[in-house]
């Protein structure tokens, strides 16, 4: 059903959202929740998934309604759509995931102000098909979730010596079995810096540095491959 051209477009879209234009590591959008809620992997994952839900739904809704939205009032309309969706998610979590809701607190309603949601509505969903916008929203959300989860896991392991602590808030009682104690629970291990806000900043900086390093390495290898096949002289010059 999909032509090769559109298949590669979907791939580009995913690659763009998950890596090249990752909201958390490259666009640096919506840092407030990223830094505030990434103190444990479960909190981070939950907020990431809630954001993904909102970006996907708002992307689809904006794309579906785009022909009725006059250009000069598009921003108020986008905000109405986003705020409505966030409030629905907020109420739903309050009703059916109450424990998690108490932990995430103000950061669920604050998804409304997460720039990534409005940015994708404005830059992508308002000029693409519903399917493309939904995929873009989903992938952008997942890109953010991935960063949140990594950062959350990093901070939780360093800060408390556990992983997936509080999983029961997300999964019910079965979640208790998921908690990994990397340091024996009795040892009272605590490394506060990682759990406090500075740990969020330092952790995010380390993740960004790691991504830049990986990109740089890939670029160097590509350049090396290209120069090896092109001219032997330039490869000699580049070894030093």
């Amino acid at each position: 059903m999909t032509t090769p051209a559109s298949a590669s477009r979907w791939r580009d879209l995913c690659h763009n959202a998950l890596w090249k234009q990752n909201p958390g590591l490259v666009q640096l959008l919506g840092l407030c929740p990223v830094l505030a809620i990434s103190n444990t992997a479960v909190n981070a994952l939950a907020l990431g998934l809630a954001t993904t839900l909102v970006t996907t739904l708002s992307g689809s809704a904006v794309a579906a309604a785009r022909q009725w939205i006059p250009n000069d009032i598009r921003n108020p309309v986008f905000i109405i759509i986003i705020a409505t969706l966030v409030t629905c998610v907020d109420l739903a979590m309050n009703a059916w995931l109450h424990g998690l809701y108490l932990v995430l607190g103000i950061f669920i309603p604050l998804i409304t102000t997460n720039c990534i949601v409005l940015a994708r509505a404005e830059a992508f969903a308002s000029r693409n098909s519903v399917r493309a916008a939904a995929l873009d929203g989903l992938m952008m959300g997942l890109g953010l979730t991935l960063v949140l989860l990594l950062l959350g896991a990093l901070r939780e392991i360093l800060g408390k010596g556990t992983l997936f602590d509080g999983a029961h808030l997300l999964l019910g009682d079965a979640g208790h079995a998921l908690v990994l104690h990397l340091v024996p629970a009795g040892a009272n291990y605590q490394f506060l810096l990682a759990m406090l806000p500075p740990g969020g900043f330092i952790g995010l900086a380390l993740l960004i540095a790691a991504k830049n390093w990986l990109d740089e390495r890939a670029r160097r290898r590509a350049a090396q491959r290209a120069s090896q096949s092109a001219s032997p002289i330039s490869s000699v010059a580049s070894t030093e």
Partner: peptide, 8 residues
């Protein structure tokens, strides 16, 4: 600063 924040 790391120490005083982490291990007061």
């Amino acid at each position: 600063a790391l120490m005083v924040v982490s291990f007061p």
